[in-house]
Design a binder for these strands. Sequence first.
DNA 1: ACACATCCATACCGGTCGGTATATATTCTG
DNA 2: CAGAATATATACCGACCGGTATGGATGTGT
Lengths: 200, 200
Amino acid sequence: MKTKQADQSRSTILQSAFCEIHRKGYQAASIANILHDTGLTKGALYHHFPTKQSLGIAVVDEIIGERLAKLLFEPIRQSERPIDALLHLISHIDKQVPADFVMLGCPLNNLMQEMSALNPEFKSSLNGILKQWRDTIEWALVTGQKQNDIRSDVDAKSAALFIVSAWEGCIGIAKNMQSNSAFKSCMKQLHGYLAGLRTD
Amino acid sequence: MKTKQADQSRSTILQSAFCEIHRKGYQAASIANILHDTGLTKGALYHHFPTKQSLGIAVVDEIIGERLAKLLFEPIRQSERPIDALLHLISHIDKQVPADFVMLGCPLNNLMQEMSALNPEFKSSLNGILKQWRDTIEWALVTGQKQNDIRSDVDAKSAALFIVSAWEGCIGIAKNMQSNSAFKSCMKQLHGYLAGLRTD
DNA sequence: ACACATCCATACCGGTCGGTATATATTCTG
DNA sequence: CAGAATATATACCGACCGGTATGGATGTGT
């Protein structure tokens, strides 16, 4: 079976679309630009993706979702002490991510801000990833409570929602300031908030 | 002097541009759409604003900046106990703002996410407002420390940065979830964080 | 009342956009 | 190897975009 070449084209386009969207946003992303880097043409793109929107959704599901899963969800889920894993991620996330991610912002958050109020299909895909994130952190907090590591009076669901919100907020503010050090300082405060939920 | 009519036209356009940008974002905002509601035409718009960008910057400086100043900065600055004012704002901000603001997001944050990495002029205008916000909260924290209301070991600058970040993060997440109750829950956690900075 | 500046409407322009129709390669299947 | 299905290239389309040129209306200072 030699669909290999076709799959290769599809993922080349997907990757290029991810970069263009990350830099310009979805609406400002240009099909022509996406194709220019790849050497492919519209024939290839519209064979694999019926519309620009379907390409955008595929970027969300297959690139952004996968990356977050590998970077955040799995390390927490697979840890025996998930709170420690979470604290470690919050402290060292800036080293595990490409350098331009603070300058360009979190791809997930960028698209949420741009598209959620405009397009229900984007919203539901993005919301799915966001929910995985919240659920992972909530699970970590509940597990921490069982391990007597997190205070039992902590509302895990609300705290998880806040941690994700603050996390994205830190990236967003750092992006606006175009400042890596602001990002680190901000995440340190988030680390302090989470540490404050631990048992004394 | 009958420049009244001209000023009226200018501010009508400005207001309509604010709505369109708030709904669609700057890049997707259409000059034709902005004008459609107003009954004016391109002649009027390009008389008052040389380019679309200058219109966008004017929206930031004259509408968004002014609103935030009236809504947040002034109440804190004018309070005798600014921490109380800040806590009160965090608790009740959802009642002081149009109902669609959670659904459409914070106009400041929306534009920061969209434009800061793309356009230096937008970035500097937006950053100016953001700095006022941070400085106001930092001032509130320092004043709180002088009043023995905030612990002296709190790093006011970092905490202020985090509070603004988390604040915007809460709005952003709530916007994606299109959920007013998520916003309130999230702001309640922020309230808890700030309350945790107080002296015991 | 006349000249002048301000203010705004209309028509138009080149460029870019997402998307399509069609023809041609390439690969899979019998 | 023939034929069918898949995969890609090319040329083209209408819609919309921001911006401009021009001319007319309206007030303003003298």
